[in-house]
């Protein structure tokens, strides 16, 4: 947990994720400051769902998120580029064969 005491007066930053409708994933909506998680949920309600944009909210301390570094993007994602055989369209199936 965020043991690091930053600015005593500044409420910590939370990232907000909203589920727009039942059946959909929670999606990053933005961020806000709050003293704690319950307050972050209340603020998220006011800041990000004033027009019925959601049915469920997740909040997480920004400092608890680990993100990939853009500088590593090539080594992380490049290897997938030449593996076209991972896609169904790579395989040519004769027209006679159905439901495949």
């Amino acid at each position: 947990m965020g043991e690091r005491v930053e600015d005593k007066h500044q409420w910590p930053l939370y990232e907000v994720f909203i589920r727009a409708r039942g059946g959909l994933d929670h999606k990053h909506a933005g961020s806000l400051h709050a003293a704690d998680a319950p307050m972050a949920i209340e603020h998220a309600r006011d800041v990000y769902t004033r027009r019925q944009e959601g049915v469920s909210i997740w909040v997480v301390r920004s400092t608890d998120i680990t993100a990939s570094d853009p500088a590593d993007a090539d080594s992380l994602f490049e290897p997938a580029r030449d593996k076209v055989y991972r896609h169904p369209t790579f395989y040519e199936i004769p027209d006679e064969v159905k439901t495949l």
Binding site: L13, E15, H28, G30, S31, S62, T63, I65, D69, A71
Partner: peptide, 14 residues
Amino acid sequence: MYTQALDVQGLEPA
């Protein structure tokens, strides 16, 4: 990600 709490200072590459 919407946060400067993550490492934005890592601007200078090694």
